[in-house]
Design a protein around this nucleic acid. Structure first.
Lengths: 257, 257
DNA sequence: CGACACTTTGAAGACGATCAACGCCGGTGG
DNA sequence: CCACCGGCGTTGATCGTCTTCAAAGTGTCG
């Protein structure tokens, strides 16, 4: 169990470019931390004491609005890290909640450890910087999507990304978490999400229950980077892995075939 | 002229904690760069070669969607920096446009200079890390606002922030840039923005032409951090300077008096 | 089998975008 | 000095999309 946990942790981008010895030394400071489904890792307002690496399972990062609604900011899986931004900024309290979506294994490190390690190891520091910069970039893209894309486009975009990120088979895979969670992640209501799925069929994305099938693969592929004539400039449709998706004429101005 | 430019630049948070000598040494590598109103600093797709510090004037960072719409990501004034994220991430091309809103003075540095300086000076490196982390945090809040607040709330929030950020007099100040730009920044149409302003009057915010007056100051003040009963947990209404604004009952659930 | 969580579907409503027309102002040129 | 123009902002009417509220359907697990 411990061995598997470490394997996932050492594959984190934070350790890229480090020797196996260096990784061992850094990881030695971590304690295994288990969470059961629905258990909280921490809540909004808790003091920032620790840094975490996800080894297995899934962690949901979310905020609660005063009227009781939840907005999911991130869904983290093995290899992802939690808390580096707050620690770097010396934030005193957590600004969001972290909860296990399913049984989850983490490695726990102290905030001090993170800072010391960054000071002591320039490669690690650069990885940290890069991870935070990447998060900033992803959030900015997310924001752009939110303000310029329709719900249909967002869902299509999300499913494509999901497929790439989790290395699923496009010709058929199962959603890794509930539709409620996905809707919350996309900042829309469950009902809207549910209705949207039906609209995707004509575009070659079929969803029934938790089963997703990219039918008419060539058509879908055609939407992917390289075949989209405005790929370079199509910032609206840029997806994190450098792939593109233009699902509706509306915001493509018909330039994407 | 040069003296003023340097004064604004050295006040940047990137140099906090450095001795005057260190600042001098770092700033010596910069070249003054002038932009006239409407002139581009760079465009989407341009190679990432330089890092900039804004000394005076205003720079608009924006993206163009394929259907011709513009979304303004940031409005930068003296002390702000441009390009650190792309450089840290080794991005090859700019992912957005940067244009002068008015005549603007900048300091230009090479991308290499930024990296070398970060390597050579740990305090500078930490400031850089902190600046990027702060940007990430601000963007995340922005995203949360976008998905949970109404147009009315966003505008009210923006005006309050503007007042704090620019150190304006709440009892009366002039908008520092056009309403078109503000609307674009808030991700809404000019018409929506225009209509929204009228709705703010009952809440103690009066806008006529470019003149903004926070009337009924006590009422407004009451909305500000400390007097809002759910201040600590009211992430939706958290504003960058640690101030709060709850302008409508809708999402406060009546908890904010 | 029943309880419960999760999802789907329907109908109504709110909100912001869109299209269109008009007013205002500063600048330019005759 | 006046007429015209273009940029900017306001206002009105309409439309589409997403949310909201309500009810019913599906699946799983004890």
């Amino acid at each position: 169990m411990q061995a598997t946990a470490l394997a996932a942790a050492r594959s984190s981008s934070l350790f890229s470019g480090l020797t196996e010895q260096e990784k061992d030394k850094l990881l030695a400071a971590g304690h295994v931390y288990k969470l059961e489904k629905k258990e909280y890792l921490f809540r909004h307002g808790d003091p920032v004491k620790n840094f975490y690496l996800v080894c297995s399972g899934t962690i949901q990062i979310f905020r609660e609005t005063p009227d009781g609604h939840e907005k999911t900011d991130e869904i983290l899986i093995a290899g992802h890290s939690i808390g580096e931004r707050e620690i770097v900024q010396n934030a005193k309290t957590r600004q969001f909640n972290a909860m296990a979506v399913e049984d989850t294994l983490l490695l726990e490190f102290s905030a001090v450890w993170l800072k010391e390690s960054a000071k002591a190891n320039p490669v690690f520091a650069l990885n940290l910087l890069s991870a935070i910069a990447r998060y900033a970039e992803e959030t900015a893209i997310e924001l752009e999507h939110q303000t310029t894309m329709s719900a249909t486009q967002m869902v299509a975009c999300f499913l494509q990304r999901l497929c790439v990120l989790y290395d699923f088979d496009p010709s058929g895979f199962t959603l890794p978490y509930s539709k409620t969670l996905i809707a919350s992640r996309l900042g829309m209501e469950l009902e809207t999400f549910s209705r949207t799925l039906a609209k995707l069929k004509p575009h070659g994305i079929s969803v029934e229950g938790t089963r997703v099938v990219f039918t008419n693969l060539p058509q879908i592929e055609a939407y992917v980077c390289g075949e989209c004539s405005i790929a370079e400039d199509c910032s609206t449709h840029r997806v994190l892995q450098g792939k593109l998706l233009c699902i509706e004429k509306k915001s493509c101005g018909g330039q994407c075939k």
